[in-house]
Amino acid sequence: MQIHIDYFAILREQAGRQRETLQTDAKTPAHLYLQLCEQYGFELIQARLRVAINDEFCDWSQNLSDGDRVVFIPPVAGG
């Protein structure tokens, strides 16, 4: 399954890239984040993040579909 990922803020810096497309066997965003933590050493735990699929907030247990665009959202700090 092919998934597009956009990285922002601290995750963008730790991944060393703004976006990527990768082949994954991850079924859910939770599973995908674990894989990426192993790859990039993200320090933020999942409990402190939110996740979006195709520009809408979603559950960590939602099923990923081929071609989905996933964004992991670090703790926000607008204003």
Partner: peptide, 21 residues
């Protein structure tokens, strides 16, 4: 989903709310 990176007078910088996390 908006983030801010603070740059300090001592030359250091960090993403607000993320360092604590």
């Amino acid at each position: 989903p908006i983030w801010k990176k603070e740059h300090y007078a001592d030359g250091k910088a960090q993403w607000v709310n993320c360092a604590q996390c």
